[in-house]
Design a binder for these strands. Structure first.
Lengths: 297, 297
DNA sequence: CAAATAGTGTCTTTGAGACATTATGCG
DNA sequence: CGCATAATGTCTCAAAGACACTATTTG
């Protein structure tokens, strides 16, 4: 069985023991994780419900390049781990959370995306309940903060060209934490002619976001917005007990669109199961607390 | 502006010109492309329509490891190109096609997935009209062939465990080309307990498919099946002119499920535009030929 | 004419959108 | 009591499922 021999007369075992990796250039492999959570703002009207905010964790860079800018938590992959394990390891260091929703997003490989050297980034999307997370106060120079996320879509331009057209859409990202506001803008171009379709993404503006991380965050948001409608992914952002209005507000903040209450409950309450707990001291009718229902399919 | 200095008193420019990559281990970065096409079988009953088959391109390995097994077309990424450009370059060498639908799938990074060394694989999904493709007849030792794709889902087992459960599903893949039949089986395990959810994929059986490529092909199929329902991705498999029944058969072969004609046309004919061409000599009523309609949104 | 596909009409079912109505705790 | 939210009822509308019926070509 094992006796198949190659062109040099070697068996697989012989080949492998003699194998020496060729001396060509290899990229460094980083992981960068976009971790989102949802927090509540303070509300002074005791009757009203507090609003929610979508937050993303950023780390202040303490060295060149992009010194002083903010970057996604991440690091390099070790030879004895998968990219997912690397993302999990880095995330645990940053947030103290071990069991967290994690999903691979995309591998960014622009040769010049890191000015130092050839670095690819395998990006991950992580979601967590803000209650469980304890971000370490910047131990050394390393400062980690949650930034409030706002996005804008700028009107698209369609340019008819000979035999096809070009469509450009710009997406703006604004991250804020107290007085600190950082932002970026990504232009998506679809070029279509007789030859086929070509998509390009370029960062057209960048204020304080390191590397191509504005683009990665926008990609993560796009994925989150897409999946929220047909999966139970949003439940990863909820605490153990929550009201259906809480859940609805999380959907609204992700989708950027108000949801109709009756329709929302019809569709998404199947992802939850009622408990016998109720909210209280709210200045209005108490609300039932629900819990995530794990789906078997 | 540029005068921010780091802990060593260096500006970014000074830092970068002095920067030497650290001498830690780096992975090799490969791309592997799952390219699908749809072909017609011969039909001897002149009245009946020919059936369609989903095909994937595989390359016979001429050296260790997996000598004699079949692998996805692919290769290593060069420092001056993106993974997408690398996939496109390799694909052009194999199929002669330049403008082809290409979409990044997933980066596989199991440290032991290649017995030679640390190799990650950034996988791509490609779709093409079989008419445009001209696979080079194996120039040297390199033999490329289209394999017919069949999949099976084996009944899942749910095991209740303390505080949670484990669900296992097995997916079988059978690729055939003439007398040559190669196959693989992947087990997906979802383990859920109080701590969270953990997904594992392992190859439980493998006959003649190199590396973890059976898993990659199954992943590509999953993506294709998912996207076919809400995008126009399937149109990339069609020739310039096709009937709506052709299109329906392509959907049926991808989804593995019969579609209802009236409903299918209501939903997917918006992706096409009618031409004034018709089929002929068919032994039954002629059919209108349609063309892809490029959507602006 | 028979075989087989092409193409459409329509009834049913499902689910989301829209809005209204009733219920309830707190200061 | 009135504010603000909780929870549900119901009408409408859009889309998909199911199936039937008519139209056309070729040997």
């Amino acid at each position: 069985m094992e006796e198949i021999r190659d062109i040099n007369g070697l068996t697989e075992k012989e080949f492998l023991s003699a194998y020496r990796p060729a001396d060509y250039e290899r990229p460094s492999m980083a992981v960068d994780t976009v971790i989102f959570t949802v927090t509540q703002t303070k509300e002074d009207n005791y009757r009203k419900l507090p609003e929610k905010e979508l937050k993303v964790l950023m780390i202040k860079r303490g060295g060149h390049p992009y010194l002083g800018s903010w970057a996604l938590p991440g690091g390099f992959v070790n030879p004895d781990e998968t990219t997912e394990q690397a993302a999990m390891r880095e995330l645990k260091e940053e947030t103290g959370v071990d069991n967290i929703y994690l999903e691979q997003l995309y591998t960014f490989s622009e040769p010049k995306r890191d000015p130092r050297m050839w670095v690819m980034s395998c990006s991950y999307l992580a979601l967590a309940d803000s209650g469980k997370i304890s971000v370490k106060a910047g131990d050394d120079a390393r400062q980690a903060e949650w930034f409030t996320v706002k996005t804008h879509t700028f009107d698209e331009k369609i340019i008819e060209k000979d035999g096809g057209f070009e469509k450009m859409t710009e997406y703006g990202l604004i991250l804020s934490h107290g007085d600190e506001v950082i932002s970026g803008r990504v232009r998506h171009t679809v070029l279509r002619n007789d030859m086929g379709v070509k998509n390009t993404y370029e960062i057209t503006e960048n204020n304080g976001i390191a590397f191509d991380h504005a683009r990665i965050i926008l990609y993560a948001l796009e994925r989150l917005r897409g999946k929220v409608k047909y999966t139970d992914i949003a439940l990863n952002l909820m605490p153990e007990y929550f009201t259906l209005t809480d859940l609805q507000m999380v959907y609204e903040i992700i989708l950027g669109k108000e949801q109709i209450k009756a329709a929302f409950r019809r569709k998404y309450s199947v992802l939850t199961e009622p408990t016998d707990k109720m909210t209280s001291d709210a200045g209005h009718r108490p609300s039932r607390l629900y819990r995530r229902k794990w789906l078997t399919d």
